[in-house]
Write a protein that binds this DNA or RNA. Structure first.
Lengths: 211, 211
DNA sequence: TGCCGGCGAATGAACGGTCATTCAGGGTGG
DNA sequence: CCACCCTGAATGACCGTTCATTCGCCGGCA
């Protein structure tokens, strides 16, 4: 598996605009659903195909292989997450408010999308290979962005500066991930719960960091 | 897969005391090593066997199947964790000190055992089935124990009581898990780092909870 | 003490089932 | 009639598990 992700020959002009919707998208969405339910390894390619309403072979027109499908899901999710996060941070003044935004963004993207939440939090760790090779780079960027916000706060004298921003960013992410996992695996899908939990965690984290 | 864990017929008198060591143990230890390196699904049973220095078939004398090997690893780890945690909590006075112990225990067990750390933090999520069926019960007990400590502190008026202990226990665990994951996957294996990180996190968490 | 019979742990080659992936042909729009 | 997306049955590799066989050990017996 070489470095290049492998621009698969992409079917041209797939009824773009018509109600049919893009096949690639249908497959991706179906994969999220099935992966969430059964886990990556227990999911058969044919199941994704059926869920997407396409033939088995069609998947290979849009993705290199089964792994690639999972990788694209991460890419999409992490990409969006990073993008939204940076936008929000730029648009916000004050360290505290920024950290609250971080929490909002990370859990907010999952709100109402249990399937995505489960795929991302659970399946992200399915394969160390995947994790290390594909997810890691984007992921590190994400953590660094958070660490920067914290470091900024320390420089400005708002936050205690005897703690390592990187460690704190990991911990913040981990805490949110833990909350999301509980929510995704738990019985009640009430998105309000997720938001409430996020708020509580943000409070603790902020109080703990305040100088 | 019935409820009973399946007491596998245990080879009698396996050179006990001699240098040979117990086979079951050798297999378990080898499995931790290999799972950590390649992940559960990418690991071949034959690889575990080779790493343990036994024949493929021998594994099936001590374990029901490949899944069972993973399950036993969790069982062992979570069991120990819970046991140590409860002992420590009972032996400690004061909520703050107790929470510091929680952090110490959870990360302390992994200290110097990168492989185990990776297996537990990464592979715990390999299969929702495994996670839900086996790990969950012990795991919930673990989280509840932490939640109790927090609730206790709230009742005593030491900790702010407007936050949900369960959510906080999840967050605490998640944060520690995140730190451990970074450590396990990261380049430098320096156990000091892990301890330092744990201390920092404990500080933030405690400050954040203090009334 | 020395030999024998039997036990059962250990072995690893072979089996069989399970998918990921392929590809030859159908169908449709232009 | 061409182009090319799509199909889904067929393929073949892969790997967890089995089981017939080996062999080291032990207790009993002379």
């Amino acid at each position: 598996m070489s470095g290049t992700a492998g621009e698969k020959r992409r079917p041209r002009r797939a009824k773009e605009g018509s109600k049919g919707g893009d096949k690639r998208d249908r497959i991706l969405r179906a994969a999220v659903r099935v992966f969430a339910r059964k886990g990556f390894y227990a999911t058969r390619v044919s199941e994704i195909a059926k869920a997407a309403g396409v033939a088995d072979g069609t998947i290979y027109l849009y993705f290199k292989n089964k792994d690639d499908v999972l990788v694209r899901i991460f890419e999409f999710y992490l990409g969006r997450l990073l993008e939204v996060l940076r936008r929000e941070i730029d648009a916000t003044e004050g360290v505290e408010e920024r950290i609250r935004r971080v929490v909002e963004v990370q859990l907010g993207l999952l709100e109402g999308q249990r399937d995505l939440a489960e795929v991302v939090t659970v399946n992200l760790r399915q394969s160390s290979r995947l994790l290390k090779q594909y997810a890691a780079p984007l992921f590190v960027q994400y953590l660094e962005t958070i660490a920067d916000v914290i470091a900024d706060g320390q420089k400005q004298g708002v936050l205690r500066d005897d703690l390592n921003p990187r460690i704190l960013s990991r911990a913040l992410w981990g805490g949110l991930d833990g909350i999301a996992l509980t929510w995704a695996l738990g019985g009640d899908a009430d998105p309000t719960q997720l938001r409430k939990a996020a708020q509580q965690y943000a409070t603790v984290f902020l109080e703990g960091l305040r100088k």
